[in-house]
Amino acid sequence: LPRSPQRLKAAVHYTVGCLCREVEEDKDVQFSKQSIAAIAEITFRQCGTAGLPGECFLVLCRHAKRTTVTTEDVKLLARRSNSLLKYITQKSEELASSNTEKKKKK
């Protein structure tokens, strides 16, 4: 089902709002509605309408002569920070092991 950009933006805005509420509770700070809107818009655009990671993925994929995006491509997006790369790599390993467990159960 094709989704309108407005609908996608609304979903991102809502989710960003939820995440900001969690940060507010954790850190005892307040976000203005405008700052949540700005974070939402930046997140939305980062996700691909401006061709950012989306285009990156295509380039990475082609670079490795693949047509399917894999976790390796995702890891490359995090390459600039060791902390972020470690975090993403851990998540990817957790995901992989839980996937193999699920397959075993079947």
């Binding site: 407005q6 609304a10 805005h13």
Partner: peptide, 9 residues
């Protein structure tokens, strides 16, 4: 921004 998007959620 919020008012514009709310109807689309």
């Amino acid at each position: 921004y919020e008012q514009e998007l709310q109807p689309h959620l």
